[in-house]
Design a protein around this nucleic acid. Structure first.
Length: 100
DNA sequence: CACGTGACGTCTA
DNA sequence: TTAGACGCCACGT
């Protein structure tokens, strides 16, 4: 559990429903620019039963970066919060929901 | 130490 | 706007 991961979890916890952010922005906000990939690494480690809103993190293009079952899981969770997600995982007007 | 890889991002044509 | 090239960084092999 390094400092980066800790900062990441804290920030994630502060993202309210209906809002979202991107891997890169989250990394920068945590004080680690250019560490977008590491964010993904850390999120991938989260247990499936975590309470953290990991699904409110998408890539810079505003689309889901997962695949298969994981993709469907994130898509549903996002839609449950009111987001309109295309079959390809693209979130409509995602820029309007950025919190960071 | 070299190399490949990944829940990524940015620049450029 | 879009695709492709390139950049980045931690980690495993």
């Amino acid at each position: 559990m390094d400092k980066f991961a800790q900062a990441l979890y804290t920030m994630l916890f502060h993202i309210p429903a209906g809002k979202l952010t991107t891997y890169g922005r989250l990394a920068s906000a945590a004080g680690y620019p250019n560490h977008a990939r590491h964010v993904g690494k850390i999120l991938a480690r989260l247990p499936t039963e975590t309470k953290l809103p990991w699904f409110r993190v998408v890539n810079a293009q505003g689309s889901i970066s997962l695949s298969g079952d994981s993709f469907q899981r994130q898509k549903l969770l996002l839609e449950n919060e009111g987001f309109n997600v295309t079959e390809q995982g693209k979130i409509q007007d995602f820029r309007k929901y950025l919190i960071i």
